[in-house]
Design a protein around this nucleic acid. Sequence first.
DNA 1: GCCGAACCGTACGGTACGGTACGGTCGCGG
DNA 2: CCGCGACCGTACCGTACCGTACGGTTCGGC
Lengths: 216, 216
Amino acid sequence: MLARTLPDEDWTARQGEVLEAALGLLVEEGATLTTAGVARAASCSKETLYKWFGDRDGLLTAIVRWQAAKVKLPRIDRERLDAASLREGITSFARNLLGVLSSDTSVALNRLAISHGGTGLGAIVLENGRREMGRRLKPVLEAGRDAKLLRFDASETAFRTYFGLVVRDVQIRLLLGEDCRFGGAEIAADAERATDQFFALYGADEMQALPAEQNA
Amino acid sequence: MLARTLPDEDWTARQGEVLEAALGLLVEEGATLTTAGVARAASCSKETLYKWFGDRDGLLTAIVRWQAAKVKLPRIDRERLDAASLREGITSFARNLLGVLSSDTSVALNRLAISHGGTGLGAIVLENGRREMGRRLKPVLEAGRDAKLLRFDASETAFRTYFGLVVRDVQIRLLLGEDCRFGGAEIAADAERATDQFFALYGADEMQALPAEQNA
DNA sequence: GCCGAACCGTACGGTACGGTACGGTCGCGG
DNA sequence: CCGCGACCGTACCGTACCGTACGGTTCGGC
């Protein structure tokens, strides 16, 4: 397997510290992030910033990549797959997704990428966010299909439906500034609900036992 | 019926022209919109802009409200409700929603509101976008429930599920700059798929005839 | 025809920020 | 001890843009 399509850039420890400080500042200051502010927060000089990252855009790109490289959730293994483990794998994926999307860091990074038009930042976030999520879950879904536990034609379509059932309007509401921050309990309940609905739509016949209308 | 909860600010014809020009400029220039640019595009002076809207923020707010006041989709009437008309009402709502969300104007306005942190712009977009959509569809859903065609406890939850099934990851992908622009055919197909899935989840028993796994 | 209000076009001050240059400091190899 | 490279802090420059001021023009009322 290829390590990554992206050239997994390796920063030095000091550069990592700077990027970490920049990320923290981005979370609390939003898109009004300034190079002077980063230099101050990271106790480094602007000249060094420009020497390392070349450009303000380069710095922002590095921040996004830095965060993207950090979230390396363990892939779910497809061995030992029965109905219960499949369901738990899918549900835990949803919990994870909701937890990430509702984090301050994710909101700040998505805000940055969105406000930054089309300079590639959005593509990076898309590739390491939404796309990577699909890459994580699809093998599980396909294993479930192989085990006759799920029925679907295209795993991409099935994943997008699950994504919609899980996320619904949460991400856009967070991005638009509504503080519908919810804790672990609500996340777990939402993940359960979405999984119930997903199995009602894509489960093999014997899996569709649970009624779908148990709304939170 | 109350006209609107918002004080339906009435601009003069000339002010409407200016706002229209500003909206067009916002679509093609994005968040880098400048007052001088608006003045140039609208053939008016910056002084007039500040006289009318007070502030750059006031101008942006006026643009958002202006667009919000324009999209006055006809509410669906709940009379003469059988299975076919309910389904058509819901599906046409989904078509409408997808059409609006994928429009350049919607993308630009959402980008603006998102990049603009928490200065109320996001709240306005939320109120006139996502919230208004709920206000439109919920009566239809409740009428369907009264007619024993749908089953759910909270119409809000049912609506949010439908929202997720319709929109999925489309909006965030558009906001992040991916050009997954699709035409009327794809929109119609997506609306049909989402409606099938919605009836599979929330339809009364005799409505769940259609299989759910007909993926695009 | 005259006045005033509204508005257009433009020019200007203030400021914030991206990007650069320069002096000073630390650590290391010779 | 010397030189050197990396880096910090800061001062600085150019530019872009917000917000305002001013002269000129149009238009309705009298």
